[in-house]
């Protein structure tokens, strides 16, 4: 799980071009949107594609994405759960 979390951090930094952020700066349980990393709705769409491209997981709409993208941890949980199935 820790590997997955770290891998996700690197992928998110790359996908969202967060040039000033280092993986160790991101708290895996901090909110991605709003106060935490400060991502917005467009970033959410970028993350949806990231899940599809890197993990073969489809998120059908932005609304159901809300729960998945609460934090890096929730993303990792979602990936771990659905990859197994």
């Amino acid at each position: 799980m820790e590997d997955l979390v770290n891998q996700l951090k690197v992928q998110i930094i790359k996908a969202l071009k967060l040039e000033d952020v280092k993986p160790e700066d991101i708290n895996p349980t901090a909110p991605l949107f709003g106060d935490g990393l400060g991502l917005d709705s467009i970033d959410a769409l970028e993350l949806i594609v990231l899940l599809e491209k890197e993990y073969g997981l489809r998120v059908e709409n932005a609304a159901s994405a809300k729960k998945i993208f609460l934090s890096i941890q929730s993303m990792a949980d979602y990936i771990a759960e659905h990859k197994k199935a």
């Binding site: 996908a15 467009i42 769409l45 970028e46 594609v49 599809e52 491209k53």
Partner: peptide
């Protein structure tokens, strides 16, 4: 496939 919106916007 696998397109993201930022550069389009």
């Amino acid at each position: 496939q696998f397109l993201t919106p930022t550069s389009f916007i």
